[in-house]
């Protein structure tokens, strides 16, 4: 009978053997460090990687074996936490969801746009989260708790299902040309999170939220370029959600 150690050894051996199918990947990364210079610069790294490795693992390889100063956010590496959104070959995506095979043999990585860069690929998320907080992203219901439980039909539940998927990675908001140009625009992610409550049958705060979103920093800044929908790593129909909010404001339907 085998032992647990044997199973691990097999696994390690396969991993080592897997390197035989490795490809060479050149990463061109936009760097920034205010302690060194006020200007950004480009660095290139060349690494061996498995075509099925995710880009975040390759970035780890760079950080751990080539240049420990490279800074980027990453956390769950499962596409749940939303911390590693980057501009990868010109498109916003999560580094933990992009395979080497999808981008090679050369990949350009930059920080997401429209937010101040703090260091390398790390941007200041505070203005983004401030926009999110503006739309009252919590359930508002002052009608008192029901005796037993508050009912919600499966259809009512499905009405806002798509927008519950948001992980606040900012891929949508920082792909939006209006957001880049207009500091006041609240951005797609905040509207998605407003949508999640506006169309929740249990919520009573929609009027307040729609008022906030009808202001000049709100939904009517959107010019339906669909960048946000393309960028969303969760596949949320972002532009559709924004249009639904616009329609609610215009026709008072929600």
């Amino acid at each position: 009978m085998a032992t647990p150690a044997d199973v691990l050894q097999d696994s390690d051996a396969r991993r080592a053997g897997g390197a035989a199918g490795a490809v060479t990947l050149t990463l061109r990364i936009r760097r920034f460090n205010p302690e060194i210079s006020q200007d950004s610069w480009w660095d290139e790294f060349t690494v061996e990687a498995d075509p099925l490795d995710r880009l975040v693992e390759v970035l780890h390889q760079v950080k751990w074996y080539h240049d420990g100063t490279l800074s980027f956010r990453r956390s769950c590496a499962h596409g749940i936490c939303g911390s590693d959104a980057m501009l990868i070959n010109g498109r916003n995506a999560l580094a933990c969801k992009v395979l080497v095979d999808d981008v090679g043999p050369r990949v350009t990585i930059e920080p997401i746009r429209g937010l101040a860069v703090l260091k390398d690929l790390i941007v200041d998320m505070d203005p983004f989260l401030e926009g999110y907080r503006t739309v009252l992203p919590f359930l508002i219901n002052d009608s008192g708790e029901p005796d037993k439980e508050r009912l919600q039909s499966a259809e009512e539940r499905a009405r806002f299902d798509d927008t519950t998927k948001c992980i606040l990675c900012a891929a949508c908001t920082t792909s939006c040309p209006i957001f880049w140009g207009d500091e006041g625009y609240i951005g797609p992610a905040a509207i998605v999170n407003a949508h999640r409550f506006i169309f929740d049958s249990r919520d009573e705060g929609s009027r307040e939220r729609l008022k906030i979103l009808s202001e000049k920093t709100g939904v009517f800044r959107c010019r339906t370029t669909f960048n946000c929908t393309d960028a969303c790593p969760r596949g949320i129909q972002v532009t559709k959600a924004i249009q639904e909010v616009k329609r609610s404001i215009l026709f008072d339907r929600f």
Partner: peptide, 11 residues
Amino acid sequence: AEWGCAFARTP
């Protein structure tokens, strides 16, 4: 659920 958690629902 009262706080808005999007649990699955019965028919």
